Simulated assay, not measured.
Amino acid sequence: MSTILVTGGTGTLGRLVAERLRADGHEVRVLSRHSRPYAVDLREGGPALAEAVAGVDTVVHCASSPRGDEEAAGHLIAAARKAGVAHLVHISIVGVDRVPFGYYQTKHAVERLVVESGLGWTLLRATQFHDLLVDVFERLARAPVMLLPAAVGDQPVEVAEVAERLAELAVGAPAGRVPDLGGPEVRSLESLARAYLRAVGRRRPILNLPLPGRAYRAFREGGHLAPRRTVGKRTFEEYLTTRFGPALEN
């Protein structure tokens, strides 16, 4: 069986990838800033990173941060090349090449680093996780009125399904960019927000606001969606039921 390093292996996605690979009998190393014995801040690199990748067959790069992703990827790729890693699997976001949003542009830059790394590589893009939408709606629902960007849709996907696909890719040969993984439904943000409010039993008026800028226009045009790749199975309502119980009247 392979020795596989999962960066961000204690996070929402990486933890599930590591669990799946271990269940399939692989030796898995979990790298994160605070996880022993491979506690590494990828933005700093150094000897601890070299130790983490030594003897590894495949790296699954799930680590991500609001700042420093390009620097982190550069350190990881350099260490992987030096260690003779055969396969780098990277998870990205649908639309990073179409939506001029700062975080997306950074993710696209990381993709380019992976493609130009000289390593065997596989790149999977996924739509937004159910968990992320709930986190956003929880923050927005703190105000008396829930403000949403007008005419924007989303296509949330179950994180466990993305983890399963990444684990499958990790044990295969480098495949380049593979087909996107999108959630089962393209929905308006308003319909998703109302489903969330029903699930948690809260009442909030929703106001859809048009926003300025190129990034908003790209989101409104669906640049972050994969309507031809509705391959996810679990719907947002099914996720909400598991997390919060049956929907409450509100």
Rank of each mutant, 00 (worst) to 15 (best):
F129N: 00
E116I: 14
A143M: 08
A39L: 02
A79N: 10
H90N: 10
V96I: 15
A79C: 12
R98P: 12
G102A: 10
V115S: 14
T58E: 04
L49F: 07
V59Y: 04
V89S: 03
A50G: 06
R139A: 15
E44Y: 04
R142S: 15
T127Y: 08
T106H: 03
A54Q: 09
V134D: 03
K107E: 06
L113R: 02
S92H: 06
A50F: 05
V40I: 12
I77K: 04
D135M: 15
G68M: 01
F129V: 00
L123Q: 01
S117P: 10
V136T: 05
R81A: 11
A126I: 05
A73V: 03
A83E: 04
H130M: 14
A83W: 06
F137H: 00
P37F: 03
R139T: 15
G74C: 11
A78H: 03
L119S: 09
R33D: 01
A86G: 14
E70F: 13
V85L: 04
I91Q: 04
P100G: 15
Q128S: 13
Y103A: 14
G74N: 10
I93G: 07
A79T: 10
A78F: 02
R112E: 15
F129L: 00
V136C: 02
V60D: 02
S64A: 13
T122R: 02
H90Y: 12
Q105F: 04
H130G: 14
D69E: 12
H34Q: 13
H108F: 09
H34W: 08
D135R: 14
A72V: 07
L119R: 06
H90T: 08
V40W: 02
L123F: 02
G45R: 01
A109L: 13
R81W: 12
A143P: 05
L113M: 06
P37S: 04
V145W: 13
D135L: 15
G118R: 07
T122Y: 01
H90S: 08
A52C: 09
G84V: 08
Q128P: 03
G46Y: 00
L119V: 11
D135K: 14
A143I: 08
V59N: 01
G95S: 11
E70I: 15
G95F: 08
T106P: 03
V114Y: 06
L124M: 11
G84W: 10
V85R: 00
L113Y: 00
S35K: 07
Y103G: 12
A83C: 08
P100Y: 13
K107G: 02
P144T: 11
L124D: 09
S117W: 12
L76W: 03
V136I: 06
R98S: 14
P47Y: 01
R112C: 14
S64E: 13
G95A: 09
K82V: 13
I77G: 05
A143W: 10
G95K: 06
A80G: 11
V59H: 03
A79V: 11
R81G: 12
P66V: 11
A79P: 10
P144L: 09
R112K: 14
G102C: 07
P66M: 10
G120F: 08
D135H: 15
V40L: 06
G95E: 10
G45N: 07
V59D: 00
G68Y: 00
V110D: 07
A52H: 04
